[in-house]
Design a protein around this nucleic acid. Structure first.
Lengths: 334, 334
DNA sequence: CTGAAAGCGCTTACAG
DNA sequence: CTGAAAGCGCTTACAG
């Protein structure tokens, strides 16, 4: 596979490399019509494709952004990612997605790798445990946007859900339906993940606002594999909750599995609301009431904010944290 | 953001660029211990990161492969993709995923774009309508592997499911459970997509093998948005099928939606088997019997076959079509 | 054991 | 209107 380069085209068209390059970059201003045609023909005949790697080296721009997600398993992540790609493609940027798998070490690896690959900017769902790296990017004036989570004291714009409102909507709906013993389960909070902490806070605030007693043992956090056990603990309480708010899609699924295995009827035996809309929510039996995130808008805004930074070479973050409103999708599980 | 290059490191460490490069590439053979330490220190102090773009240009390898999927919406695609990434990462290759969205034009765009970006090879779920491009890659001795589908007369290795067997397992199971009026719905076959055609063929063969009459109007194909209408047509037949084989996950979901909306009980009113295991199969009510593909193995083999081609610079395809066996996951929907 | 030089395939002032 | 030359940041024979 003998690659054909710009020199080959130049020779073939009997012009210089410079002229071919002008042609490729559509700088036709002063180019003779015949020259143009000859180059076009040569490119055609040789099947020439410009080498983007070489171009990137010279132009110091790869027209590519990186996105490092905390965990690709969440439905939220997949959808946001898709929105980011859409925006990028229509702006002629490419996207490289990496999955940090909730592991700060992997996140570090990917940040370094992507920067080494000279991507023009980064969208990160931060694990939170790489402050040094985040600060270095800031110092280097390297374009970054956080998504879904923020990191204490790191002045990088973050685009997130109004998580407190999400829990609020759910609690309010439970109460409207006559429930007062409302529990909540989230995935692990040992790493201080923003949405989880905020959703728990939002839950607590909403409970108070509704004039209900806040029962500390009604709120639990655990790794996905332990969710079912934790749920069981809740249900074994003297006064078990009659309704459960699932902190995200993974928690919801574990609750549904548990209910099925134990022959529990939803909502009769246990009412359920999940934060994050799941693919099967509408046709599950019962259809699941969820609090949906505007995933497309979040991704879109993230991508646009990053591209804006890249193009205008700006680092000063006027927006900082931007929050989107969640929406309650009322169905049959409560 | 003043980037620090290999020259800066060289100056700082008082050695030449060559020596720094040797160090970076771990060619320590004849390197003085003190030199090594000075370079190490300089790199540390300057926060130097090699520019992979420059390296790629010189080495003519980006250590990156591209994968162009036909349609990212299928569960199969997501899982295979993940397996490919796993293999690549552990071999120190990166992966760029592109979604052709079942559109040959987009596929063309991505093939050209990825080749221009100098990815070292391509895994393609071919739309089938870019024969010219496929042939050019072959002519250029450019490493490619097809996945999930094959293209008539293009001698490029393809890794696929034994699709006929998939339908066969399903039909056999229906029959065992006492069903004889068995229908099948697939997504559109106007583009002659391999798995769909083969699954229909497999269905027909199995029907014959079971000694059942083959009823032509029992097998339908349609775009996802029309699946529900097509299902309705089937059920409106004089002698409607009592069991339906869903050709893939998207078809299954439409069938489930229809059943729910029309208050049909599964399997009492309609028995269902889906080809492709869906995330919610095990905890849906009823749990859905599916024919699962070994997605991880398929992706793994695809990636390994491609990396092998890349590393050994071989084009001769001894394996050509390799097929994996599907597995019946017996649950409660039939 | 280390350095000078050429070159990967482009782009971009600049000269004419 | 077009071309010669320098340079992007590396790597790699080769010389010493």
């Amino acid at each position: 596979m003998k690659t054909v380069t710009i020199s080959d085209v130049a020779t073939h068209a009997k012009v210089s490399k410079s002229t071919v390059s002008q042609y490729l970059n559509k700088r036709y201003d002063y180019m003779g019509e015949k020259t143009k045609q000859r180059i076009e023909l040569a490119i055609e005949e040789l099947g020439y494709q410009p080498n983007i790697v070489a171009r990137s080296l010279k132009q110091k721009s790869t027209k590519t952004i990186g996105v490092i997600v905390a965990n690709i398993l969440h439905n939220f992540t997949t959808e946001v990612t898709r929105a980011i790609e859409d925006v990028c493609i229509s702006s002629d940027y490419h996207t490289i997605i990496c999955n940090a798998d909730d592991d700060p070490e992997k996140e570090k690896h990917y940040i370094e790798m992507l920067r080494a690959k000279q991507v023009d900017g980064l969208i990160i769902f931060p694990t939170g445990d790489n402050r040094g790296l985040y600060e270095k990017m800031l110092k280097d004036r390297y374009p970054v946007i956080f998504l879904d989570r923020k990191v204490e004291d790191i002045p990088i714009s973050s685009i997130l859900l109004d998580n407190e409102m999400a829990s609020g909507l759910a609690v309010e709906h439970f109460v409207q339906k006559g429930y007062s013993r409302i529990g909540m389960i989230t995935t692990s909070i040992i790493n201080h993940i923003t949405p989880r902490l905020e959703r728990i806070q939002g839950y607590e605030k909403a409970i108070h606002k509704e004039g209900l007693p806040f029962v500390e043992e009604y709120v639990k956090s655990a790794e996905p594999t332990n969710i079912q056990r934790v749920l069981e603990e809740l249900l074994d309480l003297e006064e078990p909750p009659e309704a459960i708010l699932a902190g995200n899609d993974l928690v919801l699924i574990e609750i549904l599995k548990y209910a099925k295995q134990n022959g529990m009827k939803i909502p009769e035996d246990l009412a359920v609301i999940g934060i994050d809309d799941v693919s099967f929510a509408s046709f599950y039996t019962p259809a699941i009431t969820t609090v949906a995130q505007p995933t497309f808008e979040i991704g879109k805004m993230g991508a646009e904010a990053l591209l804006d930074k890249i193009r205008n070479n700006k680092v000063e973050d006027e927006l900082l944290n931007y929050r989107f409103d969640p929406h309650l999708m009322v169905r049959d599980s409560v």
